[in-house]
Nucleic acid binder design. Structure first.
Ligand code: MN
Ligand code: MN
Ligand code: MN
Ligand code: MN
Lengths: 225, 225
DNA sequence: TTGGAGATTTTGACTAATCAAAATATAATA
DNA sequence: TATTATATTTTGATTAGTCAAAATCTCCAA
């Protein structure tokens, strides 16, 4: 049951590829290879080995899918990753734009004992600095649907809850626009032709591409009675 | 200049083997292999590779020694290891008897940026929880001679400053005897025939083997004027 | 000075992870 | 349906790290 960093990274990448897909769908090998920064042939070889150890189910020319055992492991890697990220921000005072890369390494090095202490110290948090849900110790992960700035209603106050991109440059852009998780904003216009979305923040109005807008998940503000 | 965890562990082990030796001496392959938990042939192969990359100088049938470049790297690994240990004790509230194994992994995963923050958060500490000196950011490491409970004067108050064994069981024993770094104690008797040393603590008198006694380094208490 | 005894090195083999490039399968297009 | 484009798998090779066991070296003692 001792997974190498490489195996953990594969499982995590498959999990994340899967979570963007419909239930029971397979993650294509090309996408997996790209996500891991390896050549397609490498992914094929590794995935066949993972299938051999019962962590994934693999269908040639179709793709790969986590088994129950594989998903259990993947979720625990994700838990470690996200708890570490939040710890680095809250306790170590690091910037939320730079903790992802650090966590990418630490997620393979922290013991269960340490992760338990981090979890307790942070008060068993629900989400990480990017709004990604933190699986609990039993492996249960909050999974609820969100709108994005691309799909939410117009001229309605919404709260940014999650950013689906860990690229530091993108995150810095989001920070500059005051669009980090927790901020209340309002989509004023969407221009299909220009492929753009305009968002009003308390400070100003920002216009961004649809691709960027789709990476910002939001929740409709619930009006108190 | 990117050393793998394995290379870092080899350099660290050579450094530690070296520090028990006279200047310019070589660490024998057998000792190195034992310290790393590998078979002698493996150590030979690896050391030849390290020599190839200029990190060590290797003399067949004699042993291995760090070059300046190798020592620089080794010291940085040691710095990370010890800062992490102290962090785990001071900030995370872990027991000093259990942080070594955790640090053994984390030392390869923490970035310079993070280690810098840890160092600052701890106030640029001089020693880790076991009394081992922490090299500073430039790689300078405090190296001064100590007595041990085996060599210090009898019936004289001394302060335990360092424990030269990371084994949790041994550390727990030290803790139980109230002989952790910082404690003031006094060696009452040494029995060469019985190979034992008796130490008086504020609470009681403990008798231990010479081997154990030699692992507890002490400093003579400086009498204030 | 001649055996060992014990330490060290060699040799051959193995696993994990990777790439380049050729071969093949699938999907899309004409 | 035949052809082309794209995705995937195979094949052959490489690097890091390791072990088992045979070969070799060093050094001490008889
Ligand atoms: Mn990772
Ligand atoms: Mn995150
Ligand atoms: Mn280590
Ligand atoms: Mn220590």
């Amino acid at each position: 049951m001792l997974a190498s960093p490489t195996v953990e990274n594969y499982l995590k990448a498959i999990y994340q590829g899967q979570s963007a897909l419909a239930d029971g769908q397979h993650v294509p090998m090309g996408q997996l290879a790209a996500a891991l920064g390896v050549v397609p042939g490498t992914a094929t070889t590794m995935v066949k080995a993972l299938a051999e150890s019962g962590l994934v189910s693999y269908e040639p020319y179709v793709g790969v899918r986590l088994t129950v055992a594989g998903e259990k492991l993947a979720v625990m890697v994700l838990r470690r990753h996200r708890l570490v990220e939040l710890f680095l921000v809250q306790v170590m005072g690091m910037n939320w734009t730079e903790v992802h890369d650090e966590a990418e390494h630490l997620e393979h090095a922290v013991s269960d004992r340490l992760i338990q202490r981090i979890d307790a110290m942070l008060g068993h948090p629900q989400v990480d600095p990017h709004g990604d849900p933190i699986p609990d110790a039993s492996g249960t992960v909050d999974r609820h649907e969100y709108h994005s700035l691309l799909t939410c209603p117009l001229n309605t106050r919404v709260t940014v809850t999650r950013v689906l991109d860990q690229n530091p440059t993108f995150l810095k852009f989001i920070e500059d626009c005051a669009l980090m998780p927790g901020r209340a904003v309002e989509v004023t216009t969407r221009d299909t032709a220009a492929d753009s979305v305009s968002v009003k923040t308390p400070d100003r109005t920002v216009t961004m591409g649809a691709r960027a807008a789709s990476k910002l998940l939001v929740q409709l503000e619930t009006n108190p009675i």
